[in-house]
């Protein structure tokens, strides 16, 4: 088991005393090699749940256990380290650092993890090559197409060989064709053993993974294992 969520609740306190219960009592386990797709209407709490999983947003109550330790019981510094080594992120808006080229963007988390510059650059280059960006190593994000940017972001998420890759609407800014391409990329990465949790409000993508979680008003409404036979249909 990679990650375990125990009774996660996340409440946002608004300014005028009204509060929003974005995640309401969610428990869930992520097993190694899974590709989980979290689906649900806008505002159903998908991003909140994902950020909480990713050690980026402390829950109001509940635990996120990774490798036997509760992520939110760690000091901010240790939590950062956990994030660095065990969790990869891919965002809807890619969130690349604008003044770093593709290679530097991808290599940066590896440097933070303590790799030598040479090793980090080598690993970043290998990944970028694998995702077909070998010709774009020294391009800045503005010089890349939308699909290329997302692939750089995926490389960055993978560079420290994380236990789990979390993706929040990775295809939200893409046309259907590019969306299919990107999903094919995720499936490929998953087939090589990478555990993935992807959040999307696009119901068509729910068949992409091998487990489908449907959220509604902060809770898990339904959960379904997508078997190989289902996909064949």
């Amino acid at each position: 088991m990679i990650l375990q969520l125990n009774d996660i609740r996340k409440e946002f306190k608004g300014r005028s005393n009204h509060s929003v219960l974005a995640v309401d009592d969610v428990s869930m386990q992520v097993e190694a090699g899974e590709f989980i797709v979290v689906n649900g209407a806008s505002g159903s709490g998908k991003s909140t749940l994902l950020f909480t999983m990713g050690a980026m947003l402390p829950p109001t109550s509940g635990q996120v256990v990774c490798d036997g330790t509760d992520l939110y019981a760690l000091s901010p510094s240790r939590r950062s380290k956990m994030r660095n080594l065990r969790i990869g992120f891919v965002f809807q808006t890619f969130n690349l650092i604008s003044y770093l080229n593709s290679l530097e963007n991808v290599a940066f988390p590896a440097l933070l993890a303590g790799s030598s510059k040479k090793a980090a650059m080598q690993r970043a280059e290998d990944l970028l090559n694998r995702l077909g960006l070998g010709e774009r190593l020294s391009h800045l994000p503005v010089e890349l197409s939308v699909g290329e940017r997302q692939r750089v972001a995926i490389c960055r998420g993978l560079v420290n060989a994380p236990d789990i890759l979390l993706a929040d609407e990775p295809t939200g800014n893409m046309d259907p064709e590019l969306t299919q391409e990107t999903m094919e990329l995720f499936r490929g990465i998953n087939r090589q053993g990478q555990t993935i949790v992807m959040v999307t409000h696009n119901p068509e993508l729910s068949e992409t993974g091998n487990r489908h979680v449907l959220m509604e008003k902060g809770s898990i409404r339904a959960e379904r294992i997508v078997s190989a036979e289902d996909k064949a249909l």
């Binding site: 950062s80 940066f108 960055r156």
Partner: peptide, 15 residues
């Protein structure tokens, strides 16, 4: 701010 947040997300320690 956005870059700082990003650095933190990819593993930069707060210190």
């Amino acid at each position: 701010l956005k870059n700082i947040a990003l650095l933190l997300v990819v593993g930069a320690r707060p210190w």
